[in-house]
C-alpha cells in the first residue's frame, strides 16, 4: 500500500547515530513462531483501516450530492479515529518506537520556513492555529 513509509513498526527498530532517547513503552511479549499473534492481528487491522481511509477519501471527493458527501465524510473521520485507536493501542503495548528529532534541526527548519513567509502573496498575517479560516459557500 505504501512503500515509502512502512505501514507499521518493523520488528527491528534501531536508530544508529542518535543521541536522543527513543520514546517507547516496554514491549508486550508475543510468540515469535509462525503463529499469527496478537501483534499481527493489530498490524493487519491497522493496515485495513489505513486502506479504508484511502478509499473513503476518494469517495468523499467524488460524491455527487451534499448529503452523500456528508455521510462519507463522517465515515472517513470515524475510520481515521479507529486507525488512531489501533495505533495508540500498539504504542501502549510497546510495539511502536518514536524517534525525536534533534531540537537544533527543528530550530533550523523553523528559521528557514519562517523566512519563506516573505514570499506570501497576501500581506495580512494569519492568526495562529489551523482551521476555521475558510468559509464554505452558503446555499
Amino acid at each position: 500500500m505504501n512503500s515509502q513509509n512502512r505501514p507499521f513498526g518493523s520488528y527491528q527498530q534501531r536508530f544508529a547515530g542518535s543521541s536522543n532517547p527513543t520514546i517507547k513503552n516496554p514491549s508486550t511479549q508475543v510468540s515469535q513462531d509462525a503463529q499469527f499473534n496478537d501483534r499481527d492481528c493489530l498490524n493487519d487491522m491497522l493496515a485495513t483501516e489505513k486502506w479504508l481511509t484511502d478509499g473513503f477519501n476518494v469517495m468523499a471527493r467524488e460524491a455527487s450530492h451534499q448529503s452523500l458527501h456528508n455521510d462519507i465524510m463522517n465515515i472517513l473521520n470515524e475510520t481515521h479515529q479507529a486507525t488512531r485507536d489501533l495505533f495508540n493501542l500498539m504504542f501502549e503495548k510497546g510495539w511502536y518506537t518514536i524517534q525525536p528529532e534533534q531540537p537544533t534541526q527543528v530550530a533550523k527548519e523553523y528559521q528557514k520556513f519562517q523566512g519563506y513567509e516573505s514570499q506570501f502573496p497576501q500581506q495580512q498575517s494569519t492568526p495562529y492555529g489551523s482551521g476555521g479560516m475558510y468559509q464554505p459557500r452558503q446555499f
Binding site: C41, D44, T48, D85, L89
Partner: peptide, 22 residues
C-alpha cells in the same frame, strides 16, 4: 467480519475489546 474474527483469535483482553468495537 475481519475485526470480529481477529478479536476471536486474540488472547489479550484489551485488544479483543478494541477489535470488537471496530
Amino acid at each position: 467480519k475481519k475485526a470480529h474474527f481477529m478479536a476471536s483469535q486474540c488472547s489479550d483482553q484489551q485488544i479483543k475489546q478494541q477489535l470488537e468495537q471496530i
